[in-house]
Design a protein around this nucleic acid. Structure first.
Lengths: 229, 229
DNA sequence: CAGTGGTCTAGACCACCCA
DNA sequence: GGGTGGTCTAGACCACTGC
């Protein structure tokens, strides 16, 4: 007769989407719900906490728990690490470094990451292949002021991404997905026609308050990023 | 002196990324960790459970808790509801229905959603504008066998998405992001040049085991989907 | 100030699943 | 079979914040 936190969650969800509790409505407090469902308060707490994480509820001390006015829906999107993505699909992975230079940060990058005027960056360009076919183009900048350790490692044999995720503790990431036309350079590298629609991922990474990395990834036409939830 | 579940989580994370526990390594069990950190097992449980949700750990009964071989990194991506997205940006939202028909499901859709041969679908095409400028093209199919209630509502004045999210309890969603070239039709609707790179979102939705909806969204060139984590 | 959620505790029982 | 995580409980104290 006791209620499981999963049952409770799904019952509460029903009352929310079913309209028993309208948008913005105040729910009973944890003690009352525990009594109604004949379970411990901790159980109610977990159910409501997870519904809040899902974006259906809004919880405040003293103010109580309310149904969110605009249900904040979201998805868990996988962040692919290119080597795993390719080998996981059963293909052979190959990496090729195109360029690796250290220079002052270009204006657009300084603006994008709020870098100082004298900021120096390491610029790495590389290609990733699946079974010999171009798969992803990588354009990456490291802020050497914020991340001095990025000056030395060699990216000749393995990608900068692998070094980065394994070595650098980062906190804030800003990610942006969009579409882009392939110009002559990119079509050459990715083996597509000029004018093909490329899938683009841009990512800016901070460690604490310090910008450390900006990356632009371009995928061959036809690539798609999938997820379930 | 007692350890908070947040502290514990961050200490465990340190040991994982710092290499104290290597990839695939077996962690101490909950009882031992509770003793080491001088806290209750429930506290250890919560810390480890959340790290597992984050994708850093892998937990199995009897087998214990291990560091994931391939850290399953992921992002929370917002699922935009078009009206909110546009009005939230301070623009005026306008909706226009292009087509609304009921017909047998086309072959590709039957294959995509594993529909029966006789499946009937309601096909809705619409445009969404921000300040009068084309913003999103929507192509949506409802499976009328799986979702009979989708037969009657009018989508003349407001979008099918709004009806769908507010009325239909769904469980499984498969989402796919990619890029696509604008053909003559799409460039006309979205007000872009032929050959522009459009950002595409495709979404298939099930309620339980029953497929109920398939949607394709195309965004004008330049659109980008952003998130932080 | 007082009510609410946030968290911890110590103990218990269970479900799973590897050996 | 036995060890592990999964969950629930009843109670407690605290932190926040609206009134």
């Amino acid at each position: 007769m006791k209620t499981d936190f999963r049952e409770l969650k799904s019952e509460l969800r029903q009352r929310i989407v079913g309209g028993t509790w309208k948008l913005g409505a105040l729910l009973p407090n944890e003690v009352d719900l525990a009594a109604e469902f004949n379970c411990a308060r901790a159980t109610v707490n977990r159910a409501m906490r997870e519904l809040a994480e899902e974006g259906l509820l809004e919880r405040k001390r003293k103010a109580g728990t309310r149904v969110r006015q605009v249900p904040r829906r979201h998805v868990r999107m996988p962040v692919p690490l290119i080597r795993n993505e390719i080998e996981g699909a059963g293909s052979r992975y190959r990496y090729a470094l195109l360029e690796d230079t250290i220079a002052p940060a270009p204006d657009w990058l300084r603006a994008r990451l709020s870098l100082h005027d004298e900021a120096e960056v390491r610029h790495v360009r590389a290609m990733h292949y699946a079974d010999g076919v171009p798969y992803q183009y990588e354009d990456r900048w490291f802020n050497l002021l914020g991340l001095p350790t990025a000056r030395t490692p060699s990216f000749a044999e393995s990608g900068a991404a692998e070094w980065f995720v394994s070595e650098v503790p980062f906190s804030d990431v800003e990610m942006s997905l969009s579409a882009q036309i392939a110009d002559a350079d990119m079509s050459g590298l990715l083996g597509t026609e000029v004018g093909a629609a490329l899938f683009r991922i841009e990512r800016a990474v901070w460690a604490g308050e310090v910008p450390v990395n900006f990356t632009r990834l371009l995928y061959r036409q036809g690539y798609n990023l999938s997820m379930r939830y």
